[in-house]
Nucleic acid binder design. Structure first.
Length: 260
DNA sequence: AAATGTCGCAACCGCCCCTGG
DNA sequence: CCCAGGGGCGGTTGCGACATT
């Protein structure tokens, strides 16, 4: 039993979007919101596949996209997140307000990979290229509980819902590449608190409801202040409501953390 | 100036997961 | 519990822009 195609391929346009198509899609979504992508093209008068519309909107037309060059901070954050999450571009994109998974994926493949190779780091494993591949643990995220990892801050926050500790441990690889081999520690969320709290190696962040919906830096955001600046918190320890590790739903799906 | 090579990005493809009936 | 539909994601491709010869 085959899966029905997502659209009538015979009657859909493909390839680059025209200005008129963009305008139609934008005006339709402004009027009706992002709804059923499958029926959207017909409703909007577009001869496009619903998936194509979704992709165009998410990757190019969304008003909150931050286009332009990646900053050095974003570079480093992407590298760190990739070392933790692997090719989970959507998760990584979730930590970079205004950036899309596709954009980050492209940027990784074209710039960061080369950058890491130039540094002598294997972009796939985040290990030194010359490093013999005997140390399996070095490439694997450790979910081992670590009391020490809980750090002092945990004592100050007993209402944590989802607590993530990104801990750096000293080992030979770590000393060569101090940003790598970060450890994640995950505890299940509770339902008692109205905001999520997350920890990084450097700071504590409390997420407002808006941020938990993935609307960081929006006008309604109370923890980011709606400044549009977003938060690059993993390494800086800023308190900018950074939705680290896909907490948009309030429940962490551990499968999303698996390394490939 | 033309030809060729390389790079970067937008878009597509196909698979997987989630959800509702 | 099973199945189909819809949405989302990661990998790949195609093409235009730019650089080099």
């Amino acid at each position: 039993m085959g899966r029905s195609p997502c659209c009538e391929k015979a009657h859909t346009n493909k390839g680059a979007w025209t200005k008129e198509e963009d305008d139609r899609l934008i005006s339709y979504i402004r009027a009706h919101g992002e709804g059923c992508w499958r029926s959207l093209p017909k409703a909007a008068g577009l001869l496009r596949c619903g998936k194509s519309c979704r992709l165009r909107w998410i990757n190019y037309l969304r008003p909150d996209l931050k286009r332009g060059n990646f900053t050095e901070e974003e570079d480093e954050l992407i590298i760190k997140l990739h070392s933790l999450l692997g090719n989970k571009w959507s998760l990584i994109a979730g930590r970079l307000p205004g950036r899309t998974d596709n954009e980050i994926k492209n940027y990784w493949n074209t710039h960061i990979r080369r950058k890491l190779i130039n540094r002598g780091i294997d972009p796939a494993t985040h290990r030194p290229i010359n490093e013999p591949s005997t140390s399996e643990a070095a490439a694997t995220i450790s979910f081992a509980s670590s009391i020490a990892a809980a750090s002092k801050e945990e004592k100050n926050n007993n209402n944590n819902n989802a607590v993530f500790v990104v801990k750096e441990e000293k080992n030979p690889i770590q000393e060569k590449c101090p940003d790598l081999n970060l450890e994640l520690r995950i505890s299940p969320p509770s339902t008692s608190s109205s905001s999520e709290t997350l920890k990084t190696g450097g700071g504590m962040m409390s997420l407002c409801f808006t941020c938990r919906l993935g609307l960081q830096s929006s006008k309604e955001c109370s923890c980011c202040g709606g400044t549009g600046s977003g938060g690059i918190g993993i390494s800086t320890g800023s308190k900018s409501g950074y939705d680290f590790l896909g907490l948009k739903t309030g429940v962490l799906d551990y499968r999303s953390l698996e390394m490939k």
